[in-house]
């Protein structure tokens, strides 16, 4: 089976799980490219950061589109694990994808209330 290029587009703060889903394909010998849109970053727990690093080790890449890559998700040398990509660059990359997966829900209109802290 030929390895597939699969992009996971994450537009909602609750759907950072798209990184894990991408990693699940990486370990099946596909190339996963989770893209976090407009700063909807998940909490960078050790688990999440390890997954992001693992995607990269498996020749994929987690991207940030529309917001600077966060500086609290770094490798052991302190280098950012998430790369930045513009919307136009993303569009061109998607033309070359085998599958494009808008994951979960779209961005919410309202900011989450304080009771959502940690989510």
């Amino acid at each position: 089976m030929e390895s597939l290029k699969v992009y996971f587009l994450i537009a909602n703060r609750m759907y950072g799980d798209g990184v894990r889903s991408g990693l699940g394909l990486s370990v099946e010998n596909h190339y996963a490219f989770p893209v976090i849109m407009n700063g909807e970053f998940p909490p960078f727990t050790n688990y999440m950061s390890d997954n992001i690093a693992w995607v990269k080790d498996m020749e994929g890449q987690v991207y940030s589109c529309g917001a600077p890559a966060p500086d609290n998700c770094v490798d052991e040398d302190g280098d950012k694990l998430i790369a930045e990509i513009s919307l136009e660059e993303l569009g061109e990359a998607l033309r070359d994808a085998d599958f494009i997966i808008p994951y979960g829900l779209s961005k919410q209109t309202n900011e989450p209330p304080p009771s959502c802290s940690g989510a």
């Binding site: 849109m37 407009n38 919307l87 136009e88 569009g91 998607l94 033309r95 779209s106």
Partner: peptide, 18 residues
């Protein structure tokens, strides 16, 4: 489209459809 497309989606669709 599962919901009304926003400007990001419209930009990406225009590139994909080219």
């Amino acid at each position: 489209y599962r919901s009304e497309p926003n400007s990001d989606i419209k930009t990406l669709v225009a590139i994909l459809n080219r």
